[in-house]
Amino acid sequence: MIKHLGTSLRMTIVSIVLLGLIYPLAMTAIAQVAFPKQANGSLVTVNGKVVGSWIVGQLWSKPQYFQGRPSAAGKGYDPTNTGGTNYGATSKKLIDSTKATIATLEKQNPDASGPPPMDLVTSSASGIDPDISPDAAYWEAPRVAKARKMSIAAVNALVAQHVQGRTFGFLGEPHVNVLELNLALDGLKTD
């Protein structure tokens, strides 16, 4: 046993150097050279200022912007506190908060057609889901159009331009990146 402990100690040290330090640090070095944008978090900069990340959702509250899904990450869309509600299907808290979300959405979107789509009334898993479903975007379009004094058709056309389909036609679900859509609405160019 003593012999095994000695070997264990030496093997631990040598494997930490190789797998715990050299491997991740070398990967970081290669990534920083080969894929610097992605490796540094796919940051979005406008006029030299970081306004977010392409892959991280944000909280939107003004009517002229598309809104994302409900978020349970911190006080909402906090990447340092990711997570979901973890409410089960029979949770009273889930049912009450879903009801409240629907009421708020319907109040904010009086011209929307029918009840809101499922993804707009349910909290995402990460709390920083950057996307909404195309249905959700079209559902919000009348509100955005009204706030911007645009025609609904023009907003719908913009949404259609930004819908990302399933990868290879069968992977995942079609979705729209909310930040991308809102930047396009403002006509902002990223650096």
Binding site: F35, S42, V50, V51, L59, P79
Partner: peptide, 30 residues
């Protein structure tokens, strides 16, 4: 390396502060 190319972060620096075009403050992790 494919994962980095596909968008996963791989860096060692501190978290990045961001202010959205609507004024929402966010700390992006890395």
């Amino acid at each position: 390396l494919y994962f980095v190319a596909a968008g996963m972060p791989q860096n060692l620096h501190a978290y990045q502060d961001a202010v959205s075009i609507e004024g929402f403050k966010q700390t992006l992790t890395g």
